[in-house]
């Protein structure tokens, strides 16, 4: 410490302004994950430019061929370039994954904060509703909902988010119950801070790490859940396609020479899920000023 009280910068103590970005950049896995997600998203959403062939360009006589220089990931049963198909399918998978994650985290965080902060009675009501959502088997609900409401991807997003918010709501409520007992919340109350200020200035910033992890976990689970649905035949239908939908189309090829039709979409899901969770970890650490490296 500098006892003379001068404002002169001490060597080696750079101002930690913009600390969030600096901490995130130091997180190598998160940076790598972010790069992968961005490249993947770019390739998928700009597939009309990036993809080597046109979408749904069938060559029925060619049929399924293994990877070659002309078709890097081979071709499927209808003779379509598999890389092209994976990129176009990625649009839907990534859109579903990201929008479900953001939607369920926002809803879960808002309800969790209300349940944890608004007092015993309201909290109990919110948590009992959450329990209700938690005890219902998600796949059954999804299947019924998609049968009844149609299978547009908007419905899929809403239904997946309707399942996803419950976990984060519980976690956030627990965090809020702990955070509101901290002395800095009492200090803010004694200073005359409004409840809105306490929630926005003190609770939400301290919840950001939890929310970041929730987003990344939810991206992963909703991509996987969408795959499961497609696999069971409740997901998007051809001509629309997603990675999960491609998996289900290729499910018969396990152990045959055409196994690559199964592996490549599976690999796309795996890489996305891993990359997103690294980003989530990085965000969590970056939101916490106490983490140095």
């Amino acid at each position: 410490m500098n006892p003379t009280g001068t404002a002169a910068p001490v060597p080696g103590n750079k101002p930690s302004g913009r600390g969030f970005l600096r901490r995130f950049r130091r997180h190598r896995f998160a940076m790598a994950g972010l790069a992968i997600v961005l490249v993947l998203a770019f390739c998928c959403y700009f597939a009309n430019i990036v993809a080597p062939f046109a979408q749904n360009d069938q060559h029925l006589l060619l049929g399924a061929t293994p990877p070659s220089w002309r078709h890097l990931l081979g071709t499927d049963q209808l003779g379509r370039d598999y890389l092209t198909e994976i990129l176009y399918a990625g649009r839907l998978s990534l859109t579903i994954g990201l929008s479900v994650a953001v939607l369920s985290t926002v809803v879960g965080t808002v309800l969790g904060v209300i349940a944890g902060y608004a007092g015993r009675w309201i909290g109990e009501v919110v948590m009992r509703i959450t329990d209700l959502f938690l005890v219902v088997p998600p796949l059954a609900v999804l299947a019924v909902a998609l049968q009844g409401l149609g299978r547009s991807y908007l419905i899929i997003v809403l239904v997946l988010a309707g399942i996803g918010w419950t976990v984060i709501a519980r976690v956030v409520r627990g965090e809020v119950l702990a955070l509101r007992e901290r002395a800095y919340v009492d200090a803010a109350l004694v200073l005359g801070a409004s409840h809105l200020r306490i929630v926005l200035r003190h609770l939400l910033p301290n919840l950001a790490g939890v929310a970041a992890v929730s987003v990344s976990v939810n991206v992963a689970t909703s991509i996987i859940l969408e795959s499961t649905l497609s696999f069971l035949g409740f997901g998007v239908r051809p001509p629309q396609s997603s990675w999960g939908n491609m998996l289900s189309q290729a499910s018969g090829y396990v152990g045959t020479p055409q196994g690559y039709l199964l592996y490549f979409p599976g690999l796309a899901i795996l890489i996305t899920v891993l990359a997103v969770s690294f980003v989530g970890d990085g965000l969590r650490d970056a939101f916490d000023p106490r983490r140095k490296q």
Binding site: A183, Y184, A187, R201, P205, R290
Partner: peptide, 10 residues
């Protein structure tokens, strides 16, 4: 408690 009296994110 000096460890909870200040908001760690500020």
């Amino acid at each position: 408690d000096p460890f909870t009296t200040l908001d760690p994110t500020m």
